[in-house]
């Protein structure tokens, strides 16, 4: 039996910040799933970093590895079947993957929290929303039932749920989709996490409600200087709130860029394809562009660049050589051998 005080020594103190270390850094992360059909390589060497008060949008289609990366950060992957053969996830410079289960659970939910996509299924149907929010204070802070309840009302007010006091004893199914997501958010920010991961927080919602939720997240981030990771497949959602974007494809990051640079001038054929497949009013009547082909099969990744079978810029080299992340500028990088061509707006 180890001394508990020794065990928590490995944990970085809240607020204590190594000058040269970002708040959260994912470094060369690999995640694979062992299935009956073989090994699925869901994440193949992903690196990104996040500073306090910063918003990183991770963009990609289903199966690109964006959610799996997030779950690896949270430590909620089911292992097995999942395995993390290589990589580091550093929080204040401490590798979370090397921590004991006990230390890890001190971080999960309290210092790194997560908001899930569909709040109706992500909230427990048989407990009141107040109970579910208050649980954070009762379990992690040892608060009494009454105190935790007061805190829950405060939080519901903070995420602007009208009539929080009256609604605290309602069940998740009694709320609208947007309100449910607010409750999910209230629960996740209950203990003032330093990092908040929102995994497609608006996908299940109406467009108008989407904007409100994004606004709320942006506000909360500003108030408490959290680092926010926004996982999405929707370019439109992140434009206003994100500082930088990492685009994922086939378990790899294919492009890093500050958000406005990316919109103005994408540096990877995949990103370019995504941007061009957004419907535009001024092009009404014309056929909408679509990226050809299908997302890669994680069990049988294409050789070389995973995007090459669908890529309009493809050359022979692309099928054999995996492109590294070429540095375009101080803040931008692209994993395309021919990024210059894409960048210069070269024709497909």
């Amino acid at each position: 039996m180890r001394n508990p005080s020794v065990e928590t020594q490995g944990l970085p103190a809240r607020g204590a910040h190594a000058a040269d270390e970002p708040l959260l850094a994912v470094d060369n992360l690999h995640v694979e799933f062992h299935t009956r059909q073989g090994v699925a390589h869901a994440v193949n060497g992903v690196s990104y970093s996040l500073n306090a008060g910063e918003t990183l949008a991770v963009l990609g289609e289903s199966g690109s590895g964006k959610s799996v990366t997030a779950q690896a950060i949270m430590g909620i992957l089911d292992m097995p079947p999942a395995r993390i053969p290589a990589g580091e996830i550093r929080f204040h410079g401490t590798d979370l993957l090397k921590l004991s289960d006990k230390d890890r659970s001190q971080i999960r939910g309290q210092r790194i929290a997560m908001v899930f996509q569909d709040a109706l299924s992500a909230l427990n149907p048989v407990f009141t929303v107040g109970w579910q929010i208050a649980e954070m204070f009762r379990v992690h802070r040892g608060m009494s039932r009454g105190d935790a309840r007061k805190k829950a009302v405060e939080l519901m007010d903070r995420v602007r749920i009208p009539g929080a006091k009256q609604r605290i004893d309602d069940y998740p199914h009694q709320f609208s989709g947007g309100m449910r997501q607010r409750i999910m958010i209230a629960m996740s920010i209950a203990l003032d996490p330093e990092v908040l991961i929102a995994d497609e927080p608006t996908t299940a919602l109406d467009v108008t409600v989407q904007a409100q939720i994004m606004e709320l997240l942006a506000e909360l981030r500003q108030e408490s200087n959290m680092g926010l990771i926004l996982i999405t497949h929707d370019l439109g959602v992140v434009a206003d709130v994100a500082d930088k974007i990492a685009v994922m494809y086939g378990g790899r990051i294919v492009e890093n860029a500050p958000v406005h640079d990316l919109y103005r001038n994408p540096g990877h054929p995949y990103t370019k394809g995504l941007l061009e497949s957004i419907p535009r009013v001024d092009l009404k009547g014309q056929e909408l562009y679509a990226i050809k082909g299908m997302p890669p099969n994680l069990l049988e990744m294409p050789s070389g660049c995973a995007f090459h079978p669908r890529c309009p810029y493809r050359r022979d080299e692309c099928a054999t050589a995996v492109p590294p992340l070429y540095s375009i500028s101080g803040t931008r990088s692209s994993a395309c051998h021919y990024w210059r061509e894409v960048f210069d707006g070269g024709s497909r």
Binding site: M74, S105, R108, D118, L123, N124, P125, M136, M187
Partner: peptide
């Protein structure tokens, strides 16, 4: 397998 169980784990519950 339900989502709310994953949520409970993500909340840091034992």
């Amino acid at each position: 397998r339900a989502d709310y169980i994953r949520t409970a784990v993500a909340k840091g519950m034992s």
